[in-house]
Design a protein around this nucleic acid. Structure first.
Lengths: 193, 193
DNA sequence: CGCATTTCTTAACTTAAGGTAACGATTAGT
DNA sequence: ACTAATCGTTACCTTAAGTTAAGAAATGCG
């Protein structure tokens, strides 16, 4: 499992054996079963997650309804907003599947960054890249219809549609489950007809 | 103008006189008139921008129509995606108003980060915060209707609605200018009635 | 100042999404 | 294996957004 992580990191910065050991000695690996809630709305936490295997999601509960807004799968990570602003979380985080992830916190990071500045560079680069990608994602969302967004997701993340319940995909696409169901039927009919 | 920048930075990390001088000696300030195009679709650039005064926007041209997806005003910055992936830009960047900004590039950053690691920490923190904020923004977008999004914008960025043409606000809200116009009339009628 | 362009509004029509509800299908738990 | 809960589909009606088009208002420029 550690290897997955060090391999991923090696794509961005080269690691000495010492640095690899520093990582694996941190004891940051955690596994959690499908359905496990990692963070609750209203809760303050300082844990950041990086998914090695499996899938986690963030969701809000609005008028008693779950609204899933993001999925994180292999080699994707998130630092919940509440970790940064130290206020109660607006959203939940839970496991869509049995998952293995790393868990970090700001204190740990400071400590590591002091010993190995390289890791801070890594984190900066990852955040900057993610920010730019995220912006493009958002742009695409704004400039397309629900149907286009669904077709787009089919292309870019076909795995998600397989591994995640459809009503969670629906709110991820910004629509209701019923609309997604209809939309899918429409798309299918158009292909056939 | 330099003071605006150093004051902003000082909110995140404390700066020595030497560091302040390092910044101001970089000669990174640029001003541009309303309508100036800073980056064109298809162009490769390595400039990042940080707005000190004024407003810039990113937009796509889709089927001959401009789709504005983001605005950056005082103390907001962006690194275009093309800077990071070195591929032609998907979007344009232009000035909504006469603007003053700093212009940076990756080489400069590396140089500065080596001399003053503090600045790398600053950039990391800013990116991480921005990423989390951006995600919440996106979440709100997905979980609300166009009307809610408009009302939300009125609350959070009342200045934007004043300083930016309405058809640009419309695509920023993910709708057509006609829809925004109708929606506004509806909202107004509801307040009165 | 007046003409051209851009921007905003309005309206009529079309299309699709939201809301509600009912009913299978699938899944999970005992 | 059976029951309960969750999940997906379908249908009906309502509401609002997209489309197209026209014209009014504001802005920019010579």
């Amino acid at each position: 499992m550690q290897e997955l992580l060090t391999d991923f990191i090696s794509k961005y910065v080269s690691l000495t054996e010492e640095e690899k050991n520093a990582i694996t000695s941190l004891d940051i690996f955690r596994s959690a079963r499908k359905g496990t809630i990692l963070l609750e709305q209203g809760q303050i936490s300082n844990e950041g997650y990086f998914v090695l295997k499996g899938c986690i999601r963030t969701y809000y509960v609005i008028d008693g309804e779950e609204k899933t807004t993001a999925f994180y799968t292999e080699m994707e990570g998130l630092t919940p907003h509440c970790v940064l602003d130290k206020k109660p979380s607006e959203y939940f985080i839970s496991c869509v599947e049995d998952s293995i992830m790393t868990v970090s916190n700001p204190d740990m990071e400071v400590e590591i960054f002091e010993k190995f500045p390289k890791f801070e560079t890594l984190c900066r680069i990852l955040s900057e890249e993610l920010l730019a990608k995220q912006q493009i994602n958002f742009d695409e969302f704004k400039t397309s219809s629900p149907e286009q967004r669904y077709l787009n997701l089919l292309q870019k993340r076909p795995d998600l549609i397989q591994r995640v319940p459809q009503h969670q995909i629906a709110s991820f696409l910004g629509i209701t489950p019923q609309s997604l169901s209809r939309l899918r039927a429409r798309v299918l009919a158009n292909i056939k007809g």
